[in-house]
C-alpha cells in the first residue's frame, strides 16, 4: 500500500450550452491507475491537454473522480470529512506564481496554510522560519511578493506548502512560466525536499530535463498512462516518445543520433556528465 493509490480513475469535463444542455464531453482522465510509494520522486509527462493536471488535482481532493478512487495516505478523497487532512497531507504547487500567493508579505503567505489549519501562533512562526530556510528564502521574509522574481515566487509557494508539514507535494507544472534560472531553482528545491526531508514528490512537467532525476516516469496521452518506468527505460524509447509528440532530453537525443549513425555509444544517456565520460571513453579507444 503506497502513500497515493490512484485506482482506475475517470474524470470528464462536460461542456454545456447556455440552456444547460450537454454540448460535448471531454474525457480528461480515462481509467488511470497509479501507485506511489512514500519517499518516491515521480514525474508525470505529457503535452498540453493530456490530462496530467486534471489527474494532479485529484490527489489534492480539488477534484473527486467520477469513477474509480483516489486513496491518499489511507484516506479516500471522496470522503468529505477527510478533505482537509488530505489537503494537508498532499500539498500542491501550481503553475502561475502570481495566482497562488495570498499574503502581501512573504512570511504572511507562508503562514496562511498553518493559520487555516488552526496551528497556535507561536508554532506558526516556527514553521514559517523553518520552511523559508529550507527553500533559502528567509532573507526575503519581509518583502512583498510582487518584488520577487518568478523562481523566487515559486520557492515561496513551495515554502508555503512545506509549512503545512505535508507528506507529499504535487508540483503542477511549476516551471512552465519561469526562465531557465528560475526553473533550476525550483527543481533543485524539489529534489532537496525529496532527498533531505524524504517528502514524496509528484512532478508534472513537459520539460524532459526535469524528469531525469525521477525514480519513475509516467507518460500520459489523451487521459491514459501510455508509458511508465525508470527514466532509463522511458527515455530509451525515443521513437515511441516522439509518436506522443514529446522530446527526449537533448543529451539523450544526441546519444541516440550517434548510436543510429553507428557509433558504439552506451544508451540511454541522461545527464551531461554521463555523456562527457562516455565520449572521453570512446575517444580513448
Amino acid at each position: 500500500m503506497g502513500i497515493i493509490d490512484i485506482n482506475k480513475v475517470t474524470y470528464e469535463y462536460i461542456r454545456r450550452d447556455e440552456d444547460g444542455n450537454v454540448e460535448g464531453i471531454t474525457t480528461a482522465v480515462n481509467g488511470v491507475s497509479l501507485n506511489v510509494k512514500a519517499g518516491e520522486f515521480i514525474a508525470i509527462l505529457g503535452h498540453n491537454g493530456s490530462g496530467k493536471s486534471t489527474l494532479a488535482k485529484h490527489i489534492n481532493a480539488l477534484l473527486v473522480p467520477e469513477e474509480g478512487s483516489v486513496i491518499v495516505d489511507g484516506m479516500d478523497t471522496a470522503d468529505e470529512d477527510k478533505t482537509l487532512s488530505i489537503r494537508q497531507t498532499a500539498g500542491m504547487v501550481f503553475q502561475n506564481p502570481d495566482n497562488q500567493i495570498i499574503g502581501q508579505i512573504v512570511e504572511e503567505d507562508v503562514g496562511f496554510g498553518p493559520e487555516n489549519m488552526g496551528v497556535p501562533t507561536k508554532e506558526i512562526w516556527e514553521r514559517v522560519e523553518e520552511s523559508l530556510r529550507t527553500v533559502g528564502m528567509y532573507e526575503y521574509r519581509k518583502k512583498s511578493p510582487n518584488k520577487l522574481s518568478g523562481g523566487q515566487k515559486q520557492r515561496v509557494s513551495i515554502a508555503s506548502v512545506i509549512a503545512m508539514h505535508p507528506k507529499c507535494i504535487v508540483f503542477d507544472e511549476p516551471t512552465a512560466m519561469l526562465d531557465p534560472k528560475g526553473r533550476r531553482e525550483v527543481i533543485r528545491a524539489a529534489r532537496a525536499l525529496n532527498d533531505v526531508e524524504n517528502i514524496t514528490i509528484i512532478l508534472i512537467t513537459h520539460y524532459m530535463e526535469e524528469a531525469i532525476y525521477a525514480d519513475r516516469i509516467f507518460v500520459m496521452e489523451e487521459g491514459s498512462v501510455v508509458m511508465q518506468g525508470t527514466p532509463e527505460t522511458v527515455f530509451s524509447q525515443v521513437d515511441m516518445l516522439k509518436s506522443y509528440r514529446l522530446d527526449v532530453p537533448e543529451v539523450t537525443e544526441l546519444a541516440w543520433e550517434l548510436k543510429k549513425a553507428g557509433v558504439p555509444i552506451k544508451f540511454p544517456i541522461l545527464t551531461r556528465e554521463e555523456l562527457k565520460e562516455e565520449l572521453i571513453r570512446l575517444g580513448k579507444r
Binding site: G118, P120, M164
Partner: peptide, 19 residues
C-alpha cells in the same frame, strides 16, 4: 483553487500568525 489547496475553509477554526 490555491487557497482551497491550502486548507482554506473560511474563518472558522482559524488561528492568526500576527494576532
Amino acid at each position: 483553487m490555491a487557497m482551497e489547496a491550502r486548507c482554506y475553509h473560511g474563518g472558522k477554526g482559524r488561528t492568526q500568525m500576527k494576532p
